[in-house]
Design a protein around this nucleic acid. Sequence first.
DNA 1: CCTCTGCGTAAGTCTTCACTTACCGTAAGC
DNA 2: GCTTACGGTAAGTGAAGACTTACGCAGAGG
Lengths: 119, 119
Amino acid sequence: MKTYAEAMDALGDPTRRRIFDRLAEGPASVGALADGMPVSRPAVSQHLRVLKDAGLVSDRQVGTRRVYAVDPAGVVALREYWDRFWSRAMDGFRVAAEEHASSRESGMQIKESSDGEGS
Amino acid sequence: MKTYAEAMDALGDPTRRRIFDRLAEGPASVGALADGMPVSRPAVSQHLRVLKDAGLVSDRQVGTRRVYAVDPAGVVALREYWDRFWSRAMDGFRVAAEEHASSRESGMQIKESSDGEGS
DNA sequence: CCTCTGCGTAAGTCTTCACTTACCGTAAGC
DNA sequence: GCTTACGGTAAGTGAAGACTTACGCAGAGG
């Protein structure tokens, strides 16, 4: 299974996010992607390779051109990961709020600066 | 605005993802986070700073300790960005499929290659 | 007072990686 | 056959950043 980690690493780069953003609006060839980008065409090629290895895009050959498009499978996997993460993060936040309240309640040594009470 | 880009960059690092994952299960102090991590405590501090600048975590002082927790605001912003991205990506995929079909129809040469994984 | 704990910060090192130019293979057109 | 588009790959370079150790500062407690 393509790890979500690879996808997150891939989208951690601004240029790759820009390329992926562009592909999200429709498939495009490498040259078309390189136009309107501040980097060279080989750079775009290398970024596309990373995105492809991460399972985020796929490519097909059309004549002499190579057309790239978003790979729905990778996007779905990433979205599922993010959904799990989302719920866990919300749980964690709830735990944080409860711990904050209970520790205050039980008289633990929490001298929150000189702020005193958090309203 | 700029938050989601910063958040994506922040989560592009494996160590920061690990820290954020840990915080998603509940708040923790810097020392507690550093324990069970393969990196030193200052490294964790620096990662926490990046996560905090990205709006993904918040901190409060408890005595001599500093307790970090996920910041729901940042998580919400990132999720909204992802939702928009998700729908755009799906649109792009539909466009790709349609273009693919039409080009096949017109008898063009097409060679597919996504990620070679036979069964 | 002094000490000890907990954490942030400074300074430096070293690895990663984004980008470049140059080159080579492949598909279409003459 | 040759030539011209298009794009992947190799090799090299420079900068970003992840990590370390050493140090400084604030709070809790004897």
